[in-house]
Structures are given as C-alpha cells and as structure tokens.
Design a binder for these strands. Sequence first.
DNA 1: AAATTGTTGTGACAAATATCACATGACTAT
DNA 2: ATAGTCATGTGATATTTGTCACAACAATTT
Lengths: 193, 193
Amino acid sequence: MYPLLSNHIARYVSVDEQDLHTFCATLKSVKLRKYQYLLQEGTICRHDYFVIKGGVRQYEVDDKGREKVIHFGFEDWWINDRYSWLTSSPSIYNIQALEPTEVLQIEKDTLEQLFITIPRLERYFHIVLQHAFANWQGRILVLQKPAIERYAHFRNLYGHLENRLSQQHVASYLGITRESLSRLRNHAAQPEK
Amino acid sequence: MYPLLSNHIARYVSVDEQDLHTFCATLKSVKLRKYQYLLQEGTICRHDYFVIKGGVRQYEVDDKGREKVIHFGFEDWWINDRYSWLTSSPSIYNIQALEPTEVLQIEKDTLEQLFITIPRLERYFHIVLQHAFANWQGRILVLQKPAIERYAHFRNLYGHLENRLSQQHVASYLGITRESLSRLRNHAAQPEK
DNA sequence: AAATTGTTGTGACAAATATCACATGACTAT
DNA sequence: ATAGTCATGTGATATTTGTCACAACAATTT
C-alpha cells in the first residue's frame, strides 16, 4: 500500500506491518489537475501532504500582486504550511499543482493521535522535518549570495527538475525576476570579456 | 533543576518528574566568555544547545572572508547546525558568543537513546523543531523582499534584542552591508520628500 | 491554419544595494 | 589620560538587479 511512502518511511525507521497499515489507513489520496490548489491563502492548513506523483509550488502573492515562490514539492516530498498548521491561523500561501499531481494527505489531529500509540511514527516525522530544516537552513545562506550563485546552487540540488519548471517559477524561487534569470542563463554561457 | 528549560518543556508537553530528571542529568552546562565558540567550522556538530543566559550568533565565512550571519540564539532558544548534526559532516558554520553566555548541551546519540524510553521527549523536540521550521519558512519569504521591509520585520520579531546586537551583525543577518543598514536607519527616520 | 494565450529573450533605463575611502565617536586596556 | 581597537556614519562611485516595453517563440484552442 503506497509503496513510495512505505519506502520513504523504511529509509528512516522500521515500523511494524501492523502500525504501517494503521497509518496508511488514515491517509487520503487527492488528485489534482494542473493549476488546482492543495491550499489557498486565507485557508487554515490542516493537512500535511506527501507528493506521490507530479509537482506543486508554494507561493505568496504580495501586496503588489507579485508571486513569490518559496518552495516546490515533487515526488517523495512532504509539504505544507507549517506556520498555519501549528497555529491554526489562516495561511498566506498557496500550494498549486504545476502538473497533474497526486498526493497523500493526513490531518494534523489524526497524526498526533497516532504519535501517541506509534512513537516510531513520530520518530519518522521528526527525522523528515530535521532534513527539511537542514535544507532550509542552507537556503537562508544561499539567499544571501549573488543571484548567479543562487542559480548554480539550485541547479546542483534540483537540476533534474529544471525541465519540469518554468523559468518564471525558478526565478521567483531564487528571489529574482524572470528577466534577470534569462540574462543570467545567457551571459553565464559566454562570459565574453 | 534548570528552571528555564523545564518551563520551556512544560510549555509544550507534560513529562514525569522522573523522566525530566533523567533528561536533565544528561545535560552539561557550558559557559562561554565573549567571542568564544560553541561550534567552529570544520568541526562536526554533535550537540544541540539550549541558551540559558547570553547570546550567540551562527555565521558562515565565505570565500572572500566575509561573514554571513544566518541566525542568532538567545535565552530560551535551541541552536545547532542541523545539517552537520544529521549527517555527521564537518560544519561550515561558526557559533560564537556575543556576550558572556551559558548554554546546556546534549549529545545527539544520548538524546536519541532517551527518545526510545521517553517518547514525550521526542514529542517536545519535534514540536520545538516545528516552531523553528515555521520561523525559517517565514524568513525565506522575508529575504525575498526589499531591505527596508526585512529590517522592519526583524524589528517586529526581535526588536527587544536590538540593543544587544551590533549593527554589523544585524545587517549581515538581513543580507545587506553595514553601510546600507546605517543609511536605511537614518533615511527611514526622515523620509524627506 | 488562425487565433489566443503564455513563456522567454533583449534593449534602454531606473532603482537598490555594494564598494571603497575616510571621518567620527565609543569602548578598552594599559 | 593616551593609545589602540572597534563600531558606525557618510560621500562618491560602481555593480547588480529591477522595471517597462516589445518582439520572438511555443503551446493550446477553435
């Protein structure tokens, strides 16, 4: 049942067949067409989502109507708005499918109930969050460097996803405009000087 | 024993006297003079640190010798390099005391042993990490905005710490130079136009 | 195929921020 | 008190990145 997720769990902890089954039984599969939303701003984020197939982007729309992409989610990634989830306050983010996408969702309260009876499950989520945290810690550092280095870093980590993303979205993720990214890509090729 | 930490724990979970005692017995208090290090680059980060008194900054020194502050730690904060901790690889960060500082440190292996016998303890660390994660998620967004908004956001969250920090460190945390921060502070006062 | 829509490239110019140089002021340690 | 160090303010200028306008191209729909 849900081999992608089961493997992901097995990568970090060992859980009984039994407990794994209990956990999987609480998951709900959700399918999205391109451009549909997993989360819309103003909504409280009550679920954590595991992407099985496809991809999503998480972004804020600022006061000037510009979209700021802060994160992507592809196969094997958990994604949600942790602040809204923690505080039950309306999210400022949208999480939108970039392509036909399937995710497994679990509700916060359900998950926390499970943690009590299956501590190994909390171990798993804790480890996953630690990895995510380490990633974000790295991103803070990268965002303090010039755009060209940010792009190089992005390609190192996510180069394999580049053909599934539009340049606009990559640019926004890097914190620059699409025009700047376009120039960066073309000038980096022939530094002509 | 360690009232600041005990209160912090009680804020999120309820733990037996007994278990709390077991946990506290594994902690070691470390005192630092100003400028001493909790972690130096090249070292593996094997501990998590809880600041009891004083403050520290976490920063990287880039190839041009410039310091990039990515995080602070003051009373009531856990701090470490999560990437180095997770992967047992040498850290690229330094964590340095900004003033006379006292922290409680716990070793990774010890902590993970305790998680097995005291699942509530893992609950606590998991929750603390979720809050930290939510914070960092927010920081990514802020780092995509103009410097003046980043500074405003910083003052909202950490205004009460501003007199304990040098402007250089604040500037670096915001991802700008000390000169730019200085101008920002002075121009924001009288927008003269 | 034509029309529509969305994405990307590029030029001219503007704005934000960095760099460098130096002055001032604050703090520390003799 | 006197150096000596360190943090901060400020001007002149350079660099990076954004903004706006428009063209080229691709994908999608009719």
